[in-house]
């Protein structure tokens, strides 16, 4: 709006310039610095900084620190990096921003605090996105995970027209209503970092500082693995073995859940997490089978339904454990 712009722009400009100058000196130099800044920011805001889950998952949401901890009444706040695998997105390291293995940064806070949007915007400032110069927008995007039986409402966050995060208020997980509601933030780290660092191809992105003793690019670290996994995912993974593994994981999950809660020594221990590990496994095996192109359109729904049934069983079990109940 041009009319009142002039006067206000003058007063603002001074402030903007100062802040912009400060931000310039503060601009992160590498992929890892962005991760470190997010870690520091959310640690300072009181989140437990966890480490990645030690299994193959498709997204940070699958980490039990999100999926299971979103259930039940206990308060929770955690932040972590999660390496994520999406076999169908492999492009042999050639596509500027598609990868079959990438990183998500995940924040989960229960109950969702009233100033979660402000906290989130603070994290963008922390990694050098100055909201006086950029256009940050919350655009409707409701989240649903058919394999987890989970959904929530929220937005994708746009920075100058690019999606930089997913922001969700969890309503249901594993078929259970979330009470209280968790707020979940997911940053696609490569894409976000490429934008902040001004890099056009992910493989060219500095992984550590460009002036480090041994500067490494993202490509130095991951180009070869992208090639190797793309070939394996698309052409080589043995589908009979994968199918068998899927069935095994499914059966083991069911067996763990249906085991007696009381062990041989008379202790009552519900094994929600070990069962959930099998559910995660089944989900990843399904993704691999999908990448191999052996799952037809009609079968797809059936497989997703089978994984969802496991997720639901695990959620049912978790809410009976100490961490999942009052």
């Amino acid at each position: 709006m041009q009319t009142q712009l002039y006067e206000i722009a003058l007063t603002w400009q001074g402030a903007d310039m100062a802040e912009a100058a400060e931000n310039r000196s503060q601009k992160p130099q590498s992929f890892q610095e962005i991760i470190l800044r997010l870690q520091n920011y959310w640690a300072a805001k009181g989140c437990a900084v966890l480490q990645p889950y030690d299994m193959e998952v498709g997204a940070g949401t699958f980490h039990p620190a999100t999926t299971l901890r979103a259930l039940g009444p206990r308060a929770w706040a955690a932040a972590y990096v999660q390496p994520s695998r999406r076999p169908t997105d492999g492009r042999y390291g050639e596509n500027p921003n598609r990868l079959q293995h990438y990183y998500q940064y995940q924040v989960i806070i229960k109950p969702s605090p009233p100033d979660l949007q402000e906290l989130y915007l603070g994290s963008l400032r922390a990694i050098g996105i100055d909201d006086a110069l950029h256009d940050i927008r919350f655009v409707e995007d409701d989240w649903e995970s058919p394999t987890l039986g989970a959904w929530g409402l929220g937005w994708e966050v746009w920075c100058d027209g690019m999606e930089v995060s997913q922001f969700t208020y969890f309503q249901q997980v594993g078929g259970h209503d979330c009470k209280p509601v968790s707020g979940e933030l997911t940053y696609g780290l490569e894409r976000l970092a490429m934008y902040v660092l001004g890099v056009d191809h992910v493989m060219d992105m500095p992984f550590n500082a460009p002036d480090a003793m041994i500067p490494l690019s993202y490509g130095d670290v991951f180009r070869q693995t992208e090639q190797e996994y793309s070939r394996w995912n698309f052409d080589q993974a043995d589908t009979d073995t994968l199918l068998q593994h899927f069935k095994d994981a499914e059966a083991e999950c069911q067996r763990i859940i249906s085991a007696d809660a009381t062990d041989s020594a008379g202790r009552s221990i519900i094994m929600a997490h070990p069962a959930y590990d099998q559910c995660i496994k089944a989900s990843h095996l399904f993704n691999l089978l999908d990448a191999r192109g052996v799952i037809s359109v009609t079968e797809r729904q059936a497989y997703i339904g089978r994984v969802r049934a496991l997720a639901k069983m695990c959620a049912d079990a978790f809410v009976q454990t100490a961490a999942g109940s009052a």
């Binding site: 969702s112 409701d142 409402l153 208020y169 009470k179 209280p180 509601v181």
Partner: peptide
């Protein structure tokens, strides 16, 4: 058309 709960 779609609504939600938040916090507690």
């Amino acid at each position: 058309p779609k609504s939600m709960r938040w916090g507690t």
